[in-house]
Design a protein around this nucleic acid. Structure first.
Length: 204
DNA sequence: AGTTAGATCGGCT
DNA sequence: GCCGATCTAACTC
């Protein structure tokens, strides 16, 4: 088994941009009964504070995004475009709404199972986008607000082995965030998207 | 390789 | 009533 050390509250309570960057190379684990589905995080985006007009939280603590107003270390999962769930981790402190969107992972454990949840032919299509990886890992809104630290249905680990060649000694790339045309210029210009350079599973 | 429309529904004005 | 922190298939070049 590829069991690693689970990330703590203190990790999630750091600056959101740092958490987004440091999540690269960590292992996102979805536990379903005895099964583990997992993948190395290869792409993230930071959404930080009420002044970030790209963030759901900037309109205030609505029913949908209220988890973002809580303390770091919990899951924020929302439904969008009528058919997709997005997985985020809440960061920083209470009343400072912020989160990291996980946009892509490289599958490690339970690939067979992932192909059951997502009807695609090529492995790269399993998890190379935020709406895709939630399908592959069977993540939906029923997990919204889950504690990410207690080793329950979903959590993030420090991998204890060199699990794949492609995520060893990686270089980090930064860019503007994707799909936020509605935001103002200063928010759009921020380079708060982080990814592992040259990884196959980066979103398109 | 690049562009475009359609899917599909909850959240918010 | 509009539109989205997206994805896919179908189209054109």
């Amino acid at each position: 088994m590829l069991m690693g050390k689970i990330l703590s509250y203190s990790f999630y309570k750091q600056d959101t941009r740092k958490v987004a960057e440091e999540l690269l190379g960590k292992l996102l684990v979805r536990r379903i009964g005895k099964n583990r589905l997992s993948g190395v995080i290869v792409e993230t985006e930071a959404y930080r504070g009420f002044s970030d007009t790209a963030s759901h939280a900037h309109k205030g603590p609505t029913e949908r995004c209220k988890v973002m107003y809580g303390e770091g270390g919990f899951a924020y999962i929302y439904f969008t475009y009528g058919m997709y769930n997005m997985f985020n981790v809440v960061t920083e402190r209470r009343w400072f709404p912020s989160a990291v969107l996980v946009r892509a992972i490289e599958p490690i454990e339970g690939k067979e199972e992932m192909f059951k949840y997502r009807k695609v032919k090529r492995e790269v299509e399993l998890t190379n986008g935020p709406g895709k990886l939630t399908q592959a890992l069977h993540i939906d809104r029923s997990l919204n607000g889950e504690d990410l630290v207690k080793g329950g249905n979903i959590f993030i680990e420090i991998p204890n082995k060199k699990i794949t060649a492609s995520t060893r000694n990686f270089k980090i790339g930064k860019s503007k965030r994707v799909g936020i045309d509605y935001a103002d210029q200063s928010s759009k210009s921020r380079k708060w998207r982080f990814f592992i350079k040259d990884n196959k599973f980066i979103s398109k």
